[in-house]
Amino acid sequence: MDFLGLGPGADVDIQLVDWDGRSRPLCPDGETLAGRIRVRPRRPGQSLQHNGLKVEFLGLIEIFHERINTHEFVSLVKELAPPGKISQPMSFDFEFNHVEKPYESYMGQNIHLRYFLRATLRRRLSDVVQELELQVLRPSSQPELVKPIRMEVGIEDCLHIEFEYDKSKYHLKDVIVGKIYFQLVRIKVRYMELDIIRRETMGSGPNAFDDHDTLAKYEIMDGAPVRGESIPIRLFLGGYPLAPTMCDVNRKFSVRYFLNLVLIDEEERRYFKQQIFQSHCWIDSDIRNQFPAC
């Protein structure tokens, strides 16, 4: 409703070059952001008074457990139109050249790192605001040599297990390949699973706060193993909501991933061993195929 010409009275849309409008735009670091802002009065033939049109490119970190939970790390502004009147649909082109996007987009349990465009048509009492969320990726180079992980789990005179994973760094769409070896089994193991744990660390030092989220539970075996038995592991990461490992982003947060091997015996006692691993988006992969939702 446009009461006395002071209400919203207009529709504002953001369009990017080469964007189909059906999904979230994918924006690699360093690329130019170009597009068009379309402003259309809701009542044909009626003039729309405004106090100027601007477009912003913003990068924000939102940490939900903090009292002041929004931290801005990128802010670019372009003025597209001075105060005036609009009586028919109009378009305004914009371009942010070679925009630096220092961090990867991230949508976690307690933390969001967001990039978006915001168009604002200033009005006397109530601005008309439209936002377009962007997905930012920062691919890294594929490591030439990645060492495997080898670990042992042992309870003296009761249990001795060796397990190995093929590497310590994985692509987001990779496959974890490994094997469990039972060297000594004197407890009645009933069940074994491999979990992927995401740990979000907010803050640093004595004020740091950790939160854990289980992203995957992969059943390795159901039943009692015997000495000398080995069990293969093949866990496909593509079906789980992993993001690249992130360390001390803007001095606000970190995101790490762990493989958690869990054993449960017939008396419901739990034994586990945890190992950190790194997740990456590698530059030699077809990014648009890896992220069809972007």
Rank of each mutant, 00 (worst) to 15 (best):
G203R: 03
L53I: 10
L26V: 03
V249K: 06
K54G: 05
S204C: 02
R24E: 15
Q278R: 12
N110H: 02
I264F: 05
M202G: 00
R38W: 03
K188V: 05
L113E: 09
H112D: 06
L259K: 03
K85L: 02
Q49A: 14
P143W: 12
I14T: 07
Q88E: 06
L121T: 03
G35A: 15
Q274G: 05
P89C: 01
P82F: 09
Q130G: 00
R269W: 13
I149G: 14
S140V: 15
R42K: 15
P206Y: 01
F277H: 11
R38G: 00
D211F: 06
E104Y: 02
Q135T: 08
I220V: 11
I149P: 10
G59D: 07
K54P: 01
D2L: 06
P8F: 03
H112P: 01
R288L: 13
A10V: 11
F92P: 08
E104G: 08
N250G: 06
P44K: 14
P41R: 11
L194D: 02
E152K: 15
V129N: 00
H71R: 10
Q142K: 09
G108P: 12
V128T: 12
D213K: 08
L215M: 01
R114Q: 11
L137S: 10
G5K: 07
E72T: 06
L261K: 07
H65L: 14
L237D: 08
R38K: 13
Y257D: 14
P206T: 04
I149Q: 15
R150P: 03
T70H: 10
H71W: 00
L76I: 00
E219G: 00
R123D: 04
V175H: 04
L184V: 06
G205C: 02
D211L: 09
E162S: 04
I231R: 14
W282R: 09
H65S: 09
K179E: 04
Q183N: 11
H112C: 10
N260P: 05
